[in-house]
Each structure stands twice: as C-alpha cells, then as structure tokens.
Design a protein around this nucleic acid. Structure first.
Lengths: 338, 338
DNA sequence: ACGCATCACTGAAGCGCTTAACCAAAGAGA
DNA sequence: TCTCTTTGGTTAAGCGCTTCAGTGATGCGT
C-alpha cells in the first residue's frame, strides 16, 4: 500500500555530505575510504535513517543475501526445529533463510530446487527427499549447494553434513534383536520414485545379515498419515513385534496406531525412533531414539555454507555419528517373555 | 561460485523474436499484446529456458513477491505448523514466505519487523509477542500488515484474524471450576515488557468474577523452559491444582515438570492447553485443549493479505471462536474427590 | 625540482526488468 | 476523403545500488 515518506537513497546522503554516491557506497561498507570520512558518512546516514535497499544491492552485486532451505518434509517436527534453528543462525550472520517445504514429494522437490536457484539464492541447503535424483548436479552448478542428512552422489556440493545411518540402523537392529525381536517393520520417508535411499539399503543389508524378517513401509511424517500406515501394518496377518522408524514423527504414528488397536507399547509392539525430538521423551512410554548433535549440525552447515559463498571454498563431507537414547519403548515381545 | 551459462535475459528473447524488450516483457505477463504474439514469445522463452529474474523485477516494479512471517516463538509447535502451512499456501499463489522467529523477545520482534519492512516485503504477517507495542503503527505505514492471534490496537492493519480468547479462557476457567479447582496457574507467553496482553487481562477479569485464586506465569514455549517454570510453580508453598496454558507447548512442560516431581496428571494436577496441536492427543493422558480452525485461518490470512497487496483493500477484523476439546488431562483435584 | 606512487574520490556504465509516453499503420465513422 | 480511434508495438527513463576505470591532488625519494 502506502509509502508516504520517499525512500532515503544513497544519493540523498551523498548530497548531504557533498560526496558522490559511489563514495558513500564505499564508505558505508568500509572500503577504500579514510576512517574520518566513513564516520562522517555513517553519521549522516543514521541521522537520515538510511537503510540500504537489499533489492537494489542484490541486483547490482549479484548476491541476494538469501539462503534457500529446502526441507524434505516440514510435517516432521525435527525438520521444523532444524529449519527454525537454521533461520535464526543465518539471521545472525546477516542472511535470510528461505524455508520451503517439499512435502516429501520428489517432483515438487525438483521444481522447488530449480526455482530457488532461479530466485538467485546465494546458497541452497537441502534435506533431500531424493538424494539420488539427477537434478542435483544441475542445481549445484547454478548455486552453492549444501546437503544435510544424506549426501548427494554425483553433485558437486559445497558441503555435506550427513548422518551415519549405517551405524544408527545397525545399532537399532542389534538392540531389537537382543530383545528377541525377529519380525521388524521399518518406516521410512515415503519416496515414490527412489527405490534406493541410503537408509533403506542399509536396513535391507543389515536385516539380511542378521537373518531378520524385515518389511519396509514408506510413510509420511504427519501424525495422521503415519498413524494410517502403522494401523495397516499392525492389523496385517502376521504383524511385526517392533517398528524401526527413520523419524520420530513416524514413531508417533505407531504410538497412535497401536493405541487405536488396543495394543500396548512396548509390551505388544516395540518402537524405535530416529532424531530424538524433545517431545519424544514426554510420551508414555518415552520413545527410544537416536540423537544427532543438532547444534553442531547447524553450526557446521551455516559456517561451511557461508564460507562457500564468501570464499568459494568447498568443504569435506562430514559424517555425524548417532547417540543412542534407549528408553522405555523397546522391550522383549510378549511371546518371548520369561 | 559458478554461473557458467550466462543468464538468459529479456533482451535475448527480444532479439530472437525481433521484438523490443518491452514488448517481450508485456507479452510474458499477458498484457497489451495480441494472443498470437504472446504465443510466439512464450514459445521462444521456453525454448531458451528463460526465467525472469525476480530481483530485477522487484527493483523495477517495487514488489518483491516476498511476504514476511514474523512468529512470536518458533519454539512453539503450533506456530511451527502454522508457519509451514503459510509457507506452502503462499508458494501456491506465487509468493515466498520469509519465516522469521522473534523468540518471544519484544525487542527482537521490533527489530525484525522494521528490518523486514526495509527488506521490502510486500506484506508482513505477524503473530505478535507484544501486540500493544508502539512500532506496529509505523510498520503498518510502511507495508501491508496482517496480524494473527491478537489484534494490533492503533495500527492500520490490512487484516486481523484474531482468536476469541475471551471465550476460550472463560470456558476453560468454567470447566476447571466445575471440576472443583480454585487455585489455578495460568502460563502465558513470556512478555518482559508488556503487562497487559489481551489473554492475560481476560484471565484476570474472569478469575476475579469467579472469585478464583489465579496466578500468572510467563513461560517460554520450548519444552525445557516451560518445564522449569512448571517445576517452580508446582514446588511452591501452596501449589495450584490446575494449569491453564495459553499454548499447548507450555502444557507439555507441565506434563514434564509434574512427572519430575512424581505428580500425576490429572489426579494431582489438571492441565488445560490452547491450540490443540495434533501431538497433544498422543500424550498420556491426552491433553484437553482448544482448537482454532487452522485451515480457515491460513486461508483467510493468505487471501486477505494478497488482496491487500494487489487491490489495496483492507479487510474487517475476523474473530475465530475456539472449539473445546475436553480430554483426559482435566479431572477433579484429589482433595475434592468423593 | 622532478617523476612517480598513493590517496581520496568521481563518473559512468551497468544489473535485468517495468512502465509511462509516444508513434506509425490500419480500420471506423462521417 | 479526411479525421479519429484503436491496435501493436517502440523508446527511453528509471528502480537504487555496485564497481571499474579514471583523475586531480598530495607525499616521497632523490
């Protein structure tokens, strides 16, 4: 709507100080100008209430100050927290995070990724739905690309902070097996087009090596969706005695689904989560999960991304190990009780 | 980093078609140009893989396509969900949501609000920490301002979608009183500088009219913070028998605090939430809460905001009534049992 | 006293798009 | 036939900033 008071521009403050617009531009950014002049310029700028126009700056300089954050699914509480943390940290380094939700849809993810690159974000941080997709290569060519969670094979990413799913999944299976579980359902992010996500491949491999009866169930992250999946699995002919959920959000669905069917956690069905969201320990029973060092994660991602933007330096892939948080949601199955 | 392939600009496609850049600009936006020419231009544009540069467009047209979403606290699960939903909906109408977290800090809120206005967002949607703050008036003068939750008295907002806290709080108190509670703790968003948020004023008034012993406790939204507040309150000399939490997130803290102290919900302490987040019904016992029609809310906010941007039309204030969702977390206090 | 850096700053050209103003040609009305 | 309007464009002036290529005025060494 309105904008009564004309915007204060560089020119205004150039006139006030008797300098050229160029000089003012330099001065305000602390470049090539003696301290004394800088002070004078800044003083006038403050007095007039000058605020640089980020749009004009972006057009002229070629950098927008925006960083895209493309989340696989914002229905996932953990990704919500992560996105919020990234937003805060980027604001702290003078940039804006553009948080965008791919809703677990690989095609939407592809569209949004290229759209964001066209938007001229300085960098794009992605929690990939489909890490194996072909378009990442192209996106990496157009902007600084950082991935979280899974690496993007084949794409020249500026940074990758990935989870050691191998370790997490292996540990989880071992714990469940030690409890006497043999029939295990794995809930994974739904992935209509990608049949070979790292975590799933690992799950299969580990399961085979342990001689387990493992089934994979793609699931959305939202409570209702995950509940529906769990309900279906639990009311099948020969239901599993344990669930391994690749996100806490999905584990919540198992709790809800079990409850609907009158089943008890952990007596009738054990549940293992991944992420260790704060709310998970509030459930009854508290959810066993695997925690990744979120603070470190955010820190690494922001630092490395900024470094890639400013200094054009790529970082090595960083693998984060999980910390097991065993809690009450895992117990021996009823049949295996003494 | 890179940008090997030179950007395709309007000029390129002007050359290809033999038209002027201006004509192409019009054609691509479907203005003042015969259909035949439009088709031709669009065809060439597609072939060259043209993507309009939003930055340049923003500079020239004065609209950025960005809408700021300033959340009071993104530690609140409900606000996280809302922000995500707004993001999706705005994307659906060709705009980007710039989600920003004020972390419950009125000063940060003020800074961010004016910063976003300077960023030239087309509109700013705010879930105010401090609705009574003076700066809203100024912000409303600089951009299209929409508020959610509480109204902004004195500011010329383009739209306000507010909650009927009066109804919600009144109903909540009555339910608690009917159960036999007289000593009630109210947990409110922390607000260092504002002693008169609507919901609190209402709480006081209603409490007095019912002759209740009510205390107000500012609390953060994150689990640890809210737990700490609840712990303190619960271990005080004459602890309340019930909590009324103005956000479900805070209620989670009461669950955790009570558990730590070996108290049972609802037998030792009743809990009432506000927001009815999906996870709330997953707790044991399920949390009693008040739901606002989230879909309608998002719909209204987006539609009205877009209308204010495009057609410069203000909307009337819209008040949403709460729907009570009584569940297991409220029961008569032990002492009042038969 | 002379040449040569260095300093402090200026001019002007863009970044890629929008938009107001203008204009020639074609068709309509008298 | 002549004027008036409409059609289908074109030109040019920015939007507010950055940045490259200067340019006089100093300071310095010799």
């Amino acid at each position: 709507m309105p904008k009564q008071p004309r915007r204060i521009t560089l020119r205004d403050i150039a006139e006030e100080t008797g300098l050229s617009a160029a000089a003012v531009s330099y001065a305000l950014r602390g470049l090539q100008v003696p301290p004394e002049t800088q002070r004078r310029v800044r003083e006038v700028a403050d007095r007039l209430g000058y605020q640089a126009d980020p749009i004009a700056r972006a057009l002229a300089s070629g950098r927008t100050g925006y960083v895209g954050v493309l989340c696989g699914s914002l229905a996932d509480v953990w990704q919500q927290d992560l996105a919020a943390a990234l937003g805060r940290r980027f604001l702290g380094v003078g940039r804006h995070a553009l948080i965008v939700d791919a809703s677990n849809d690989p095609e939407l993810e592809a569209t949004l990724a290229s759209q964001l690159a066209d938007q001229r974000v300085d960098a794009l941080i992605v929690l990939p739905v489909d890490p194996a997709a072909a378009h990442w290569k192209e996106v990496a060519r157009r902007t600084v690309l950082t991935s979280i969670g899974d690496g993007l094979p084949g794409a020249a990413t500026a940074a990758e902070v990935v989870f050691d799913n191998e370790a997490g999944v292996t540990d989880a299976f071992h714990r469940l097996v030690d409890c006497g579980h043999r029939r295990i359902a794995v809930m994974t992010p739904s992935r209509p087009t990608t049949p070979d996500r790292p975590a799933e491949v690992i799950a299969h491999r580990v399961a085979r090596s342990l001689g387990l009866d493992v089934t994979l169930h793609p699931s959305p992250h939202d409570l209702d969706g995950a509940t529906a999946v769990a309900r279906t699995v639990l009311s099948s002919a020969n239901p599993p005695t344990a669930f391994l959920c690749l996100a806490d959000s999905m584990a919540y669905g198992v709790y809800a689904g079990a409850r609907e069917l009158g089943l008890e956690v952990p007596d009738d069905v054990s549940v293992m989560g991944f992420d260790d969201h704060p709310l998970s320990r509030l459930l009854t029973p508290p959810l066993s999960s695997y925690r990744w060092p979120a603070d470190l994660l955010v820190d690494l991602v922001v630092k490395r991304t900024v470094r890639a933007i400013d200094e054009n330096k790529l970082s090595r892939r960083k693998v984060l190990p999980p910390a097991a948080k065993p809690r009450g949601s895992v117990a021996p199955p009823r049949t295996a009780r003494p």
